[in-house]
Design a protein around this nucleic acid. Sequence first.
DNA 1: GGCGGAACGC
DNA 2: GCGTTCCGCC
Length: 190
Amino acid sequence: MENFTMYDECNENFDPLFSDDMFNISSDDFSMDDDSDIILTSIKDWFNLPSTTNPDDILDTYSDEIPLNRKEWLIQDSPSQRYRAPRLFEFLILLLRKSHYESYASFTDQSKGIFQVHRPDKIAELWQAVKSRQSQQKMTYDKFARAIRWYYKSNLMQKTNTRYTFQFSSKTLEKYFIDENNNSSTNLLL
DNA sequence: GGCGGAACGC
DNA sequence: GCGTTCCGCC
C-alpha cells in the first residue's frame, strides 16, 4: 500500500495544510453502481459495520458520515512549533484542500478564491467540533457565516453577496495559496 | 439568505 | 483580538 501516510506526532515534517492524502474519500467511493463484494467489504470494514449489513442500507445511512480526525485540523504555529486549533479562515483553507470534504464545500473559481458551501449544516457542525473557543450552544450556519462576515472588515475575505458563496481576498490568496502560474509559494505557514 | 451593529465572553 | 450570540433590516 503505497502513498499511505499516517500522522505522527513526532514527525516534524507533518504539515496539516498538506495532509490531503491522510485519507481520501470521494463520493465515488460509495457508488452502489459497482456492487462488487470487494467494495462493499471495504465500506463495511471502514465503518465497522457487521458483514451482514444489507448493501442497500449502506449508501443511505453511511455515505454522509465522514469520521472526524481532529489531528488533520491542527495548525502548527510558526515560531513555537506548537499545535493549536485553527482560526476560522484557516479552517476554511484546510477544508477546501481536503478532497474528502468536497461534498461540504469546494472552489468554484480557485484562482479568485471563490468557493461555495454545499452542506451548510454539516460545515457548521464540523467547525463547532474543530474550533478553539468552545461553548455550550450549537454552532449554526448563520453564526458561522457571521464570523466570516467579520473578515470583510479586516480584508481577509470579501463579499460575494451570493447564496452560500464566499471569497478570499487577494491579500489572503497571496499569503496562503500557491501561485500555480509561477509556482512561487509565498507564506505557506499559518 | 446576506448584511452588519451591538453586547458579550474567553 | 477573535469570534459568538442575537437580531433587525434588506
